[in-house]
Design a protein around this nucleic acid. Sequence first.
DNA 1: GACCAGATGTACT
DNA 2: GTACATCTGGTCT
Length: 214
Amino acid sequence: MATKINQSMSSNRLILPQDFYARETTAVAQEILGKRIVRILPNGTRLAGRIVEVEAYLGIEDPGAHTYGGRRTPRNEAMYGDAGHTYVYLIYGLHHCVNVVTQLRDVPEAVLLRALEPVEGFAEFERTHGHTHPPKWLNGPGKLCAGLNITRAENALPVFDPKSPVFIEDDISISQEDIAIGRRVGIDYAGDAIEWPLRFGVRGNPNLSPTKFD
DNA sequence: GACCAGATGTACT
DNA sequence: GTACATCTGGTCT
């Protein structure tokens, strides 16, 4: 069913092309699992984490999405832009969340990144935040942004561009049977849409966010 | 596991 | 002006 993405043949990882994102959002959400988000800090430090949990937000048809009913504001403008760009916003006045925009221009859909498995560059972070196993500082959408130092300054960046301070590399592919599917978190206001199976995680991965899948 | 306060930008009246 | 949010960490049971 799902399109297979070829695994990288070498350690020299490829960046996922913009085309990867300009597709059906649920397909992107499932296939982005196992891929590697890379953050280059202003001081040149490279951080990377493997994506292990995401949610899909389906634009104007989705009561859980910021763009439900075609709502368009300065905050969510990035969702109306081209595929493969970040959409970063502040939630509850204190946490940032990062999405990757999918679909064609003016189709405001996105994939929310909810949890990462740390892969590169977190030694310093681990020293200051404690080293539990598994680590607890990337297993939630707000913590993920804090861990990668992503704020609204990183809104609308192209993740298919290696010169961007935030981009996504190909890494491993997760097979369909290893993907856990569940309801989305934190959209109690969204009516029936709260039941939609749009949350995807790498089954059994210890770095998933604390909220359990059904 | 359930419950709750916290802090403030954003949207809408 | 006012209500509320794609959350987190702490407390209590």
